[in-house]
Design a binder for these strands. Structure first.
Lengths: 210, 210
DNA sequence: GCAAAAATCCGACTGCGGTCGGTTTTTTTG
DNA sequence: CAAAAAAACCGACCGCAGTCGGATTTTTGC
């Protein structure tokens, strides 16, 4: 059978991933060469390309692990019955913090996830799928609690909020939003707008505000 | 003075741009090498790097021209007093069509614009700035016509709609939205949601729809 | 248990984007 | 107008990601 072979394979893969984690976090993604990865992992260069299609994909694989971790971690400590705005805020901010622990790191992740090349399409769609799934769950509960309209398509509500996440991510990477507090404020405002509606006559608590 | 010099400089720059337009549209961005560009333009390779900092920047310069064109073109044929949703729809769809005339083309543009590297940051912020400016103008008129609430921060309204554009762009590049019609429908739905609000009790024309 | 087949591994090699030193062309200066 | 200074130009060169043909290890068939 394929006993020994499979074990070795997993071991090699693990070795590559370990090397990636170590070197990427030590010196960043851009400053780590595939040769260095190979040496650190104790394998040949093309062996790596037998396991991953590109340097970016090694990176995405690493992200996949981490994202799973963040999600389960988050699922545990999130109270599923706090108001929807608060839950989403926590989710988004957690993601942002995660994504931008290392600047290159985050940029590559979001670039690949949000505007994938053909090559990495599959992997990155996996990640997005998981993300939207988690979002959908939170929103479904909110709908059933009566915090959101129930006459809308769930997908489009998810999309609506996900769009905000994309926006702040983008603003973050364009340095328009400079620190976490600004991001949080922006998200809060946007979500409030979304809930109340932009058309006149909606939720104008204090019409003559200014 | 610096007559001859300046003329020549402009000519060289133009030659490079022309070569870029030709080769990029002929063979795509990824399949065009800087050497080929140099040969086509009739200059040395490093001359190119005297005019542009990177291959991507050549591309952005090209985009800048084109975006200006699209904007002025659009400004002319857009009726500034049609309903806001319709105007935005036209703007976004026009942009999408522009961006995705060539697949690589669009992906690189949006990647660089939305998640810029340090190097291209300046140039790409220019482009975003222009974009948000145009958006802001449209929205200001809409507010003064009473189509939008006047108690909100203009920047955040722009952001709200811009977020939708990012979302559909992303969905487009992830192949979740497969043709222009789907994109248009999605945008329409999202904008309607945004106008009405997501909280219960807002604009539920036909509560028992399904 | 051994040969043939299959899977895995390897480092020399290719072609790319980008840089560097030296050369030519234009401008400035006296 | 000559010569020094400045600007623009060039192609050989570098380090990188990714590939290729062949060597090595594991599995399979008998």
């Amino acid at each position: 059978m394929s006993g020994l072979r499979a074990i070795k394979k997993r071991k090699t893969r693990r070795a590559i991933m370990d090397a990636a984690v170590k070197l990427f976090s030590e010196k960043g993604f851009e400053n780590t060469t595939v040769n260095q990865l190979a040496k650190e992992a104790g394998v040949g260069k093309s062996t790596i390309y037998g396991y991953f299609q590109s340097k970016n994909e090694i990176f995405l694989a690493f992200c996949e692990d981490e994202i799973n971790f963040v999600f389960t971690d988050l699922a545990e400590k999130r109270d599923p019955d706090t108001p929807i705005e608060k839950q989403l805020l926590t989710l988004f901010m957690e993601q942002l913090r995660y994504v931008s622990r290392n600047y290159d790191f985050g940029r590559i992740l979001v670039r690949e996830m949000i505007f994938p090349k053909e090559l990495t399409m599959e992997k990155s769609n996996d990640l997005s799928e998981r993300y939207l799934g988690a979002l959908g769950e939170i929103l479904t509960r909110a709908i059933s609690r009566g915090e959101l309209r129930d006459d809308l398509d769930l997908l489009y509500i998810s999309g609506h909020f996900y769009a905000f996440y994309l926006l702040v991510l983008s603003a973050w990477y364009q340095r328009r939003l400079q620190n976490e507090q600004e991001v949080e404020d922006a998200l809060r405002k946007l979500m409030q707008q979304a809930m109340e509606g932009l058309a006149p006559g909606n939720g104008q608590h204090h019409t003559n505000k200014r």
